[in-house]
Design a binder for these strands. Structure first.
Length: 415
RNA sequence: GUGGUUGUAGCUCAGUUGGUUAGAGCGCUGGUUUGUGGUACCGGAGGCCGGGGGUUCAAAUCCCCUCAGCCACCCCA
């Protein structure tokens, strides 16, 4: 019979991999809570418009990567491709708009792309959103949070922070015009793909990797020189703040985010090595987002990080400090007594109990050894008569007898 | 969506210019006499050679198609 297959670009998580995922999520939660961010979990299913109205129809995510379908009730639904727009929707839905809201989330996202290293169709993100008043200190705070988070994973030194400003909508439009004019004039020097992009989203030509484009881009107008007064001051404040906090960063005027809702701050933590999917954590400011979804005049700034991409950077040494103890008997008749002991004993968290119930005695020992047991409790027929069990330490190879009434006490003392 | 590359045992891989019954290491499993693991020795199971078609007396090997994985582009976390 033909075996069932897994969906392309999805992954079953188990073993070390899921431990890594949990480790990352735990560190993330700890840091977020220490910054007084509150957790939010939104549904994986959303109405299609949540994303079409916010990300922009020309964005790749909306135009070709969303998993959407019409359900039995004729609702046009999608598996969420990203977190920010969904959080913004939740803020509107639940009338969380009045206060300064500091939120964090984690969960799966879905994009129908061709899978490759660091890219899956179902991938997992952790992210934060600081929604409320417009203040560069908020931008600073979430970057500081990112710093602490990446540091807690021991990967901060493998990443560089790149930052840019897209300005407010006025200066963004002004820059778009200037860039458009420049590119139109030099259209013959552009690559074919960029020629197409020119009409849709010229900003994105800036981070094109085509050598042909890059030559031209070097000569292109500088976005940071087209910022109006408000945008310029905002960016300068942020940059000064980073310097005062001694956070290492690099201004990259070609850094643009692919989604429409971004303005002002844009930043990315990228890996130093020359790999393809090198963005580990990315974010920015999105002042028009909530309004575009029918909410109030609320500004926001946030970031998201890909768990799978963090895992690739992790030094992988999650040590398991709990000890495995195997329980078995010398004789089948005593197997139920093994379970009785376990029922009547309260074990510490640092102990992992593992019952072995098949094979010859020799096989039981071998099995315990194979799973890396620290030691074994053995119910032996003759010892059992005097209400005692055998404790064998596998690292020393030594054995001793323990009275069954004292097992709990024994473990408490031993571990 | 475009391109490159790889599919042989549970895992990592050999497999000659096409030629008997497709191999190794690791893992799994049984044994080396009584109630004791790690090391050693001797056995065993396990393969539609990714799938389909073609060439040939003969295909894991050559050709075509297809599927899957990995990688890169586009784009992104």
């Amino acid at each position: 019979m033909q075996k069932v297959r897994k969906v392309k670009g999805t992954k079953d998580l188990f073993g070390n991999e899921i431990l890594n995922h949990n480790f990352i999520k735990n560190q993330f939660q700890k840091v977020c809570k220490s910054f007084n961010f509150k957790q939010i979990a939104t549904p994986i299913l959303e109405h299609c418009e949540v994303f079409t109205k916010s990300l922009g129809l020309s964005s790749d995510i909306v135009s070709k990567e969303m998993y959407n379908f019409v359900d039995q009730g004729d609702d046009n639904l999608v598996l969420r491709p990203e977190g920010t727009a969904a959080i913004a929707r939740a803020v509107i839905t639940n009338a969380l708009e009045q206060e300064n809201n500091k939120l964090f989330y984690h969960g799966p996202m879905f994009r129908r792309e061709k899978p490759q290293a660091g890219r899956l169709r179902q991938f997992h993100q952790v992210g934060v959103e600081y929604i409320g008043s417009k203040n560069f200190l908020n931008d600073l705070e979430i970057i500081l949070l990112a710093e602490k988070f990446l540091d807690s994973l021991g990967i901060r030194n493998k990443l560089v922070l790149q930052i840019n400003s897209l300005g407010n909508s006025i200066s963004r439009n002004a820059y778009n015009l200037a860039l458009n004019k420049f590119l139109q004039k030099n259209i013959n020097f552009l690559s074919d793909t960029s020629k197409e992009r020119l009409s849709k989203n010229p900003l994105r030509i800036l981070d094109s990797k085509e050598p042909k484009d890059q030559e031209l881009i070097k000569e292109s107008p500088d976005i940071t020189k087209h910022l109006d007064e408000e945008s310029r001051v905002f960016f300068e404040n942020l940059i000064n703040g980073l310097e005062k906090l001694q956070i290492n960063f690099k201004i990259n005027r070609f850094l643009v985010r692919g989604l429409d809702y971004y303005n002002h701050t844009a930043f990315e933590y990228i890996t130093t090595e020359e790999k393809s999917q090198n963005t580990v954590l990315a974010g920015g400011r999105y002042d028009g987002l909530i309004r575009s979804l029918g909410g109030g005049e609320l500004t926001g700034v946030g970031w998201a990080a890909g768990i799978e991409r963090i895992v690739m950077k992790l030094e992988r040494s999650i040590k398991c400090d709990s000890k495995k103890i195997c329980f078995f008997s010398t004789n089948q008749n005593l197997d139920i007594e093994v379970l009785k002991i376990i029922k009547n004993t309260k074990f510490k968290n640092s102990i992992k109990i593992n019952v072995i119930n098949s094979g010859s005695l020799k096989k039981k020992f071998a099995k315990a050894n194979k799973i890396g047991a620290y030691g074994c409790i053995i119910i032996g027929e003759s010892e059992w008569e005097s209400k005692k069990v055998i404790w064998k330490n596998f690292t020393t190879g030594k054995q001793e007898l323990v009275n069954i009434d004292n097992i709990e006490e024994f473990f408490n003392k031993y571990f």
